[in-house]
Design a protein around this nucleic acid. Structure first.
Lengths: 118, 118
DNA sequence: AGCATGCGCTAGGTAAGCCTAGCGCATGAA
DNA sequence: TTCATGCGCTAGGCTTACCTAGCGCATGCT
């Protein structure tokens, strides 16, 4: 039942290996910096396993790459294409940790009533 | 470890639960859209498990949030671009061209009454 | 000729991600 | 009331991320 073109994943290992060799690091060296074991890094580079996000982040860090670059290579950032409302206000309200759900709801309704008014 | 001021949500699970309730979705509904099981979503929201990156991406998509926002909440992106701190709301209100001065004032007052309250 | 040190990789285990089946509690209709 | 439906959560198993120990092959030093 496992589906999904994992197109991103097969190249992720090659990408990591390429970047590692570019930085002239051995597996053990990179693994040490990235705080993972070298056998595991080996499996990852050969595409046997798909590392979790924080391992990815650690590897990116160790290779002086941004985490975003890594996630993009892993195919994890790309496909939220849609127009999630990027109204600054609504977005900010949704993300405000000091507001309860009900308060957010209230603020959003007021905001929308203001902006729909015309 | 109560860093309430700096980084917003105590846990990723609380963030997800908040966003889910904001969207008026039940666990089963969100789980269905995000292609995960509802018990697993339950564990995630209560912080028992930390979901892998593509589950995170699916949840973000289902909630109409960008994957970046999700990863930032999960602590996987060091450098958050959309600062999610509570200045966001007031700032966004001020910058919204569709609001009149009075409306901005009203929204700000409500927002502050929510966040100042004890 | 050793022997040391480095490499990448295999073997096999533990823990965590993620599942299905099903519980107990609300709400609401007949 | 009883029955149905939906909710969140528990129990327990399967799968995979990730580990440690150790292999075999190079290189280099003495």
């Amino acid at each position: 039942m496992n589906d999904e073109g994992k197109v991103g994943w097969r190249t992720l290992g090659e990408f990591i290996r390429g970047q590692r060799e570019l930085a002239n690091l051995s597996m053990r060296q990179l693994a040490e910096i990235a705080k993972i074991s070298n056998p595991y890094l080996s499996q990852v580079e050969r595409g046997l396993y798909k590392p979790s996000a924080d391992v990815l982040k650690n590897i990116a860090n160790a290779l002086h790459l941004s985490a975003e670059t890594m996630y993009a290579q892993a195919g994890l950032l790309d496909d939220s294409k849609d127009g999630a409302d990027h109204h600054g206000v609504e977005h900010a309200i949704k993300l405000d940790p000091r507001l309860s759900v009900d308060q957010k709801d209230a603020l959003m309704r007021i905001y929308r009533s203001f902006t729909n008014e015309g």
